[in-house]
Design a protein around this nucleic acid. Structure first.
Lengths: 344, 344
DNA sequence: CAAGATATGGAAACCGGTGTCATCTTGCCT
DNA sequence: AGGCAAGATGACACCGGTTTCCATATCTTG
């Protein structure tokens, strides 16, 4: 390698220009695939770029273009599997682009959360952010983004005032179907564990549950209804209460898998066999659903494709219309559900 | 608000300089907390900054400083809980700094992986990267980072040629302790499910297992040893095989929790009760460990603090010596372990 | 063949910061 | 009072790209 190329610092656009005997501007045109450029010139420049391993400096580019190529993932979601699925989906969308993904978990309970997020977006000058539920249901956040000129796409099931940037799954309908299945198996006494108050996803699932019961002419008995916080322990506690009710429910629908696992523990502790004496359905189809015993019937929503669609909406506003905004969740039938035992 | 402040674009350092009647350079000094600066000037400039809500442009800063403030997390780890824990730990370390975390999951099996990572680091001009096992065990990657002038910190249990940038847990010792506990309870026939070949973490755990047996004067019977790939299904398959052995093992050590869950399924399918007829120990203490039935005894390694230490090592090379490099894993005793049944 | 249209490339300014070095105050010492 | 060191501040170039504007070179066309 000639001395001319041996340098501590990375090659710049100037090096490329000098070595290929053209101006910076021309190299810039090559990089940006400008159409009005001679074939011969383009090839010559490309050869030099390849030879010296030139990579444009994204910071310089960002500065000159007055925009950058960072998109942020902001979430306060406790479900690791889901967050990672979303990251995977986003990465799929930005593969082979110059975008990068910056993550930012936040604490939903912190009073300075909104301020922290604002600082984050402002400081990094994010091009856009993607919001996961439950924080995607925060209206204040949308206002902050709008003010900072940061495009925003939300994932979730909830409808807010402005739905244009929402990628949603049809939770309500999926839950309704799940409950209908239970009633069609003969279940009449079906318990329900709701998600935490204030989560619109939780509300959607609750509505779906009520729909499902209604379609079989049933209503929720408050004695076998409880509210959890999407965590295992809350499911365990709720399960203990519901399974002490008399008469006992023959099935329990849980608003997520973690809580369903908690109910399963509660049942086991009481010597209630699943699915013979109790059917359980969860929601999310996280890893735990398939790995507990018995494997959990659950509602799966297509996290990865949803995240990919959301990211596309973000980085390619032109083609946003091409991206689907509604994804269908479906029921994954596993061994935790059976017809109820005949009672005497 | 005076018209002068109402502008579409964000305020720049020039605006601050003009409004406070000083030069750019002085404002820069304020931002960078230069010590040689008049108290009065500093306060005046700070007041203006606060008033117009000036935030320095990180891209411009990165350009001028010839370095940026992005650190990358590169991983091919299938354990969502662990990855999220690491992200949390890193965030903790960079809180209140100007660093941001860019994530990049990669596919270990892709032939272009190394090339992809190189492009990623080069394209984003990362300041440093943090590597998670198992990819942190890849020597080629370290070479790429060195070549690109990107500092690197690895997490894991493995020792490579260069250990200076390693934040490690003492897996081997922890496994040894776990196995010793089993033997002290009276177990003599202990099965082992190894992690995938080529993972040094898997190798460490295997060594620890052998240590543990040896300290009780035992050796591993190959008939009750198997190799898995850290996934549930491989644990299930291995469990089926081990539990068909005659005589059957009274305990099985699994190199991670997912495989332990698989073994639990296999035992259940064969009607073998846990822990009465079979004790099971896992590794990692992921969510699944606490949520399956019976709750799984497992080895916990302190992911979050390790990630925080690793990130500190990365962004603060000066204080690197202050950061601990070795973290202790400990055994979490849950209901999946009991003394073996007396056999006739 | 002249004139206008079109393709191509260069010089210089700019994006928003930081580094270098010079200048201008001060206070202190002799 | 003069000289000098130290501290505070500013002028200007520079980081590595993009953009604007303009000067050519080449190609049509009347």
């Amino acid at each position: 390698m000639p001395d001319e190329f041996r340098r501590d610092t990375k090659p710049t656009i100037n090096d490329v220009a000098r070595l290929s005997g053209v101006s910076k501007k021309t190299v810039s045109r090559v990089i940006n695939k400008s159409p009005l450029l001679g074939q011969a010139t383009r090839e010559k420049v490309e050869a030099v770029i390849a030879e010296i391993g030139y990579v444009p400096n994204p910071q310089a580019r960002a500065l000159a273009l007055r925009r950058n190529f960072l998109i942020g993932l902001i979430h306060d979601n406790p479900n690791a599997q889901m967050v990672l699925g979303v990251q995977e989906g986003i990465l799929e969308a930005i593969r082979d682009t110059e975008f990068a993904l910056v993550v930012r978990p936040v604490d939903r309970h912190s009073p300075t959360m909104l301020e922290d997020i604002r600082r984050f977006i402002e400081q990094q000058r994010l091009y856009g952010v993607l919001l996961l539920p439950p924080i995607s249901e925060n209206d204040g956040l949308a206002a902050v983004c709008r003010e900072l000129g940061c495009t925003l796409v939300r994932m979730g099931s909830a409808r807010l005032d402005d739905d244009s940037h929402l990628v949603a799954s049809n939770d309500r309908h999926a839950v309704r179907e799940a409950v209908s299945w239970l009633t069609s198996l003969g279940h009449r006494r079906i318990g329900f564990i709701a998600g935490p108050e204030g989560f619109r996803s939780a509300h959607e699932r609750e509505l779906g549950f009520i729909d499902g019961l209604a379609s079989a002419g049933l209503k929720l008995d408050p004695k076998i209804g409880a509210r959890g916080d999407y965590r295992f322990e809350s499911g365990l506690a709720a399960g203990e209460r519901l399974l002490s009710a008399d008469p006992r429910p023959t099935a329990i629908f849980c608003s997520n898998d973690e809580m369903a696992a908690g109910v399963l523990h509660a049942a086991r502790a009481k010597g209630i066999s699943v699915p013979e004496q109790l059917s359980i359905i969860g929601f999310d189809d996280t890893a735990i659903a398939a790995h507990i015993w018995p494997p959990l019937t659950t509602v799966r929503w297509p996290i990865v494709p949803m995240a990919t669609a959301a990211a596309h909406k973000l980085i390619d506003p032109g083609g946003a219309a091409d991206q689907p905004s509604l994804f269908l969740s479906d029921l994954v039938r596993r061994a935790s559900v059976a017809a109820p035992e005949r009672t005497a």
